[in-house]
Design a protein around this nucleic acid. Structure first.
Lengths: 112, 112
DNA sequence: TCTTTAAGCAACCTCCGGGTTGCATATTAT
DNA sequence: ATAATATGCAACCCGGAGGTTGCTTAAAGA
């Protein structure tokens, strides 16, 4: 048995990292991971960018599943989704762990 | 006192995420975090890309501190550096934690 | 010494990411 | 009904990312 959930289509990780590789989008994530949903206009407030620019960034985040939008009346509310970030977090755990093992082996070798 | 190490200039996170936002570079990281240093030619082996392309990717990783190179003789060996990845890993921990608190509040609200 | 191998440098191409403006559409408020 | 607000859609611009080719330089091997 794999540790992977059944039927959980393995999302490629690079696009998720890429989606986070932009200051504007990082800010959006920071705001949204607080739990409260925000409309596009609200998210544009305080930014120097256009509403359309913000929209594009939100679509990028949405494409990799970091956020999703719900249309309510004339505004569409965006809210955070944990899963993709959780997945790359686990991947970084794995990388760090690999490196840890290397350090352990090195230490053993030196002490021995 | 901050939890930040003294004189540790706060590296912006977005560029580190961006550096990982590419399949080729993720592969390089995967290979290098195993602990063994590799030369450019070695890292090019098995890739469909040119040596120069791989070199460029390595420079990108080097710029954000994920790897560093040591020239030995006629070849330059690249090895993994843990710190930047560790930093963004902690940031993702923070994001997840924020979200956890939201869920907790929500649960309390529903149960109450 | 001569040849092979590893890498650096530079020019070039193509395509997409990030941003803008302009206009259309739908919903809410007056 | 009309005005104001929130968003969607499309065209467009520009710079840089990712990739290539061609040539040069430096080490190592024969």
């Amino acid at each position: 048995m794999s540790h992977q959930r059944r039927n959980a289509k393995r999302r490629p990780r690079a696009p998720v990292f890429a989606a986070l590789g932009d200051e504007t989008r990082l800010s959006l994530v920071a705001k949204l991971c607080g739990g409260q949903p925000y409309s596009i206009s609200q998210l544009t407030q305080g930014s120097k960018l256009t509403r359309q620019a913000i929209t594009k960034h939100l679509r990028v985040l949405e494409c990799v599943g970091i956020v999703h939008s719900v249309r309510t009346g004339r505004e569409s509310l965006f809210e955070f989704d944990r899963q993709p970030i959780e997945e790359i977090r686990e991947y970084l755990d794995f990388v760090s762990q690999q490196w840890d093992q290397t350090l352990s082996r090195l230490k053993l070798f030196v002490e021995d």
